[in-house]
């Protein structure tokens, strides 16, 4: 999926998000992107919505559910939440949603920083294959993958969604999701 299609999807997300915020009367939300792809998408959305508070970055490495199988993620970036999440409406942004495990970990991470008033989820690309009862509020595009295929956002500029074959043993990266078997 080329750069223009991704930018169009993000623009659509911005409009949908704006409408959702108005409908639910969510004033002055705090946007938080999940490393790494989610932060790239969130940077665009943050600018589109002209939010007052700076963008937060969330690294979910310490909350992943596969540490007990694969050990430390080699590249951990510190989470950075410039404003407290306590009692705030949060817009959580990620690039690809498939199993829902990343979002589970992200919610746990977020709640160790404080108690948000609410959390809504915005994702650039949504795929089938949920392992957990997690659904997005705002979606850029729906994609369908062949068995063994995966989708990955490359960036930060230009943002391109790349389809590829999953390697035999997928690298544990937050912005890579393998198709469910």
């Amino acid at each position: 999926m080329d750069h223009a299609a991704v930018e169009t999807a993000i623009a659509t997300m911005g409009l949908t998000l704006q409408a959702l915020l108005e409908r639910r009367h969510l004033a002055a939300p705090l946007m938080v992107g999940i490393h790494t792809g989610g932060v790239w998408v969130a940077e665009r959305l943050h600018a589109e919505l002209a939010l007052a508070d700076p963008l937060g970055h969330l690294d979910i490495s310490y909350y992943r559910d596969d540490f007990s199988r694969i050990g430390m993620h080699p590249q951990v970036r510190p989470s950075h939440l410039p404003v407290t999440v306590e009692n705030r409406h949060i817009i959580l942004v990620d690039d690809v949603l498939q199993t829902g495990r990343t979002i589970r970990a992200a919610l746990n991470t977020l709640f160790d920083y404080g108690r948000p008033k609410s959390v809504i989820l915005a994702v650039l690309a949504e795929l089938d294959g949920r392992h957990l009862p997690i659904e997005p509020n705002v979606v850029g595009l729906h994609a369908r993958l062949e068995a063994g295929e995966r989708i990955k956002l490359t960036g930060p500029a230009p943002l391109v969604l790349v389809r590829g074959r999953a390697p035999a043993k997928p690298a544990p990266k937050t912005h890579q999701v393998e198709a469910a078997p």
Binding site: Y63, Q75, V76, P78, S79, D112
Partner: peptide
Amino acid sequence: LDQAEGFLGVAQQAVKKVPL
């Protein structure tokens, strides 16, 4: 050293603990 850089941030959390 790089991993330690990540863990330094845990002290900034309201709950100064991660479940690793």
